[in-house]
Simulated assay, not measured.
Amino acid sequence: MSTSLELVPAARGDLAALVPRIQAAFAIAVVESSGETLRGPIPSDSEVWESFDDPDSHVLHVVAEGRRIGGAVVGIRPETQHNSLDLFFIDPEFHDRRYGRRAWQAIEERYPLTQVWETMTPHFETRNIHFYVNVCGFRIVEFYHPGHPDPHEPPPSSAPGPEGSGRSDDDLMFRFEKTLRPNG
């Protein structure tokens, strides 16, 4: 039997409670990959609020059987229909139940005019890489690293990172795209 799943727009008053849930879901892979305790939330509070406050953002709850089990922040650009999945999570206690797959399908259905979806994930997030490529049909189209930095991010600080690069592992990111309709 299939559990009902829906996307419900988040109200402004919901956002403060959503931040720690996003951070808890994202922290799992960081801790697993590094074996270290986090020095601060990932993504940071300011990064999450910046995504919420973007005028193109739609913040959605993923709801199954009346219970909020995850969420998404999508950037919808009607003029280009080149949209982005900025944040996406399923609460850890609901992992491995196919909710992520069904939530992504619901997002695609909610925005049927989308021509291209774009998202990013850190290089160590093998679970996300599998999900985006093998489950959702995205393609890896770019890999950001110190020799090829993300043009949308600020330049590296002068503080040394690994091997004195001034960059950290946070700068090693895959960019994915899923083309649904050709332009025009």
Results as ranks from 00 to 15, higher is better:
Met1Arg: 12
Thr3Met: 11
Ser4Lys: 09
Leu5Met: 07
Pro9Glu: 11
Ala10Cys: 15
Ala11Tyr: 04
Ala11Gly: 02
Arg12Thr: 12
Gly13Asn: 06
Ala16Val: 08
Ala17Val: 03
Leu18Pro: 05
Leu18His: 06
Leu18Ser: 06
Ala25Arg: 11
Ile28Trp: 10
Ile28Leu: 14
Ala29Ile: 02
Val30Asp: 15
Val30His: 15
Glu32Phe: 03
Ser34Arg: 09
Gly35Met: 12
Glu36Gln: 15
Leu38Met: 09
Gly40Cys: 08
Ile42Gly: 03
Ile42Thr: 13
Ile42Pro: 06
Asp45Thr: 12
Ser46Leu: 10
Val48Ile: 13
Trp49Met: 07
Trp49Ser: 03
Ser51Gln: 15
Asp53Gln: 14
Asp54Ile: 00
Pro55His: 06
Pro55Gln: 06
Ser57Gln: 09
Arg68Asp: 10
Gly71Trp: 12
Gly75Val: 01
Arg77Ile: 05
Pro78Ser: 03
Pro78Asn: 03
Glu79Arg: 04
Thr80Phe: 04
His82Pro: 01
Asn83Cys: 03
Phe88Glu: 08
Phe89Met: 10
Asp91Ile: 00
Asp91Ser: 05
Arg97Met: 11
Ala103Leu: 04
Ala106Asp: 02
Ala106Glu: 12
Glu108Gly: 01
Glu108Pro: 08
Pro112Glu: 04
Thr114Cys: 03
Thr119Pro: 02
Thr121Ala: 00
Glu125Thr: 04
Asn128Arg: 01
Tyr132Gly: 00
Val135Glu: 10
Phe138Pro: 03
Ile140Leu: 06
Glu142Tyr: 02
Pro149Glu: 12
Glu153Val: 07
Pro155Val: 10
Pro155Ile: 06
Pro155Ser: 08
Glu163His: 14
Gly164Val: 10
Gly164Asp: 14
Gly166Leu: 10
Asp171Tyr: 14
Phe174Asp: 05
Phe174Arg: 01
Glu177Ser: 09
Glu177His: 13
Leu180Asn: 12
Leu180Phe: 08
Pro182Glu: 15
